[in-house]
Design a protein around this nucleic acid. Structure first.
Lengths: 146, 146
DNA sequence: TGCAGATATTTTATACTTGAAATAAATTCT
DNA sequence: AGAATTTATTTCAAGTATAAAATATCTGCA
């Protein structure tokens, strides 16, 4: 006998939360011990790596779906470590373009390789067909994306 | 042509993060405006609602997959609002049993109803078969669980 | 031109989160 | 019993996160 649709949806949600929290715990730990870094920093660097010309603060927070003020702090720390730099945008003195420094790009490359490996392990139970299924389903969850 | 398995797994992971962050943003906002509460508080209350006799601090943090110290703070605030209470465990003076107060249980019931509705909306795109698929797939992600 | 409103970002206050250290109490092992 | 270890929880320092207020700049339009 199948549950009511709302209950079933709730179940999916709770299961998703649980799986994600577990995987994140592993990633966080790995980033910490191998790179002395954190997930939020990795996320920011990852976004910047995909946009080599850099991103505005607001673009960054939109892509990561986190608040503006949040990004300010993370970028500040990354800048302090010399991994990213903020450059004035000419034509708009309000805006800031953030991009990886060469050191940052290099460092990110190492982290990304390791990260991909960790995720590969965590999702090793799934074959290509199942992954395709998951993608298709997840793409319909929430709204648009990237 | 299909990507390499590791890349495909990474794609699934990123998509899952994105969907979840989006849904969480909605929930957080809803909890804030309707109940002047937060997601972590809701999570704690939800766990306690399923265990009416209460849970130890350590059981609570294990169920929620968050650190001990984290739970201390959230429970403290909930206790301040009169929604949970901490009682000494007899036979073990180190331990604390946390449980919903009557007010807390009542309040949680309202929140849970609303929460289920919000999730139902967010996942409204999926029918029963798809939800079943999702559950089965998600259950194999990460390790065991609840 | 000049200003009303829109944008981009930072700042602030508060809450959440972790990992590690500190307490305190129970258990184990002589 | 008494010391060493383990277990339950809190405290702490630092980082992450949000929403809202504050700044600074830009844009459109009377």
């Amino acid at each position: 006998m199948s549950r009511s649709l709302p209950k079933q949806r709730l179940r999916v949600w709770l299961r998703m939360l649980s799986a994600q929290r577990e995987i994140e715990t592993g990633l966080r730990e790995a980033l910490r011990v191998k790179f002395d870094s954190t997930l939020p920093r990795f996320d920011v660097m990852s976004a910047l790596d995909r946009y080599r010309d850099g991103l505005r603060m607001s673009e960054l927070s939109a892509k990561l779906k986190v608040s503006n003020g949040n990004v300010t702090g993370i970028v500040e720390r990354l800048a302090g470590e010399g991994l990213v730099e903020r450059v004035a945008v000419d034509g708009d003195r309000r805006a800031m373009q953030v991009r990886l420094t060469p050191t940052g790009a290099e460092r990110f490359a190492e982290m990304a390789t390791a990260h991909e490996g960790w995720i590969d392990e965590q999702l090793s139970a799934f074959d290509s067909d199942e992954l395709e299924q998951l993608i298709r389903l997840l793409e319909r969850m929430g709204g648009e994306n990237a």
